[in-house]
């Protein structure tokens, strides 16, 4: 992944150079595909509950809720987690935040950074242990 990032940065540099040194059309940056992570929700817990991810990587979380109750996936730092744990906002349209109804599969993308974890903050769910750890490498 680091290698892919490096290639993307190189492409951006080329594009910038091309814009100034040549009159031709700019070269579009090479898109970096996100790292895809599959999460399963079972008995109000995430499986797996520990993820090792590249620091700064764009990660696509694909989460499937196998429970007969609704859940959500919130990926973010402490401030984000606290906002959802103690707030009342039920809408999730920010990167890394998605509601996952019973039986559904939902996807969200976010760039993971230091201090991120993933959790569900529906009433009582976090205290029940519905959270996961992100370890950056």
């Amino acid at each position: 992944m680091l290698r892919r990032c490096g290639m993307a940065l190189a492409a951006l540099a080329l594009a910038a150079c091309g814009g100034s040194a040549h009159a031709g059309p700019p070269v579009p940056p090479v898109p970096v595909p996100p790292v895809t992570v599959q999460l399963r929700i079972h008995h109000s817990h995430f499986q797996p509950d520990v993820l090792a991810l590249p620091s700064g990587a764009l990660v696509r979380f694909v989460v499937t809720n196998n429970d007969p109750i609704d859940h959500e996936l919130i990926v973010g730092d402490d401030a984000t987690q606290n906002r959802h744990e103690f707030g009342t906002d039920a809408h999730h349209d920010a990167p890394g935040e998605v509601s996952v109804p019973s039986g559904a599969t939902r996807t969200t993308e976010v760039t993971v950074r230091t201090g991120f974890e993933y959790a569900c903050h529906l009433p009582g769910h976090y205290a029940y242990g519905m959270k996961g750890t992100i370890r950056l490498r």
């Binding site: 008995h43 109000s44 196998n66 007969p68 109750i69 019973s102 769910h125």
Partner: peptide, 25 residues
Amino acid sequence: GGTAVGDWAREHGFVLPPDAPEVLD
């Protein structure tokens, strides 16, 4: 089963606590 009954309850307005899926199973 636990999931079916949980589904029925949710569809009928029950707000099930987070431990309900495991306990129903």
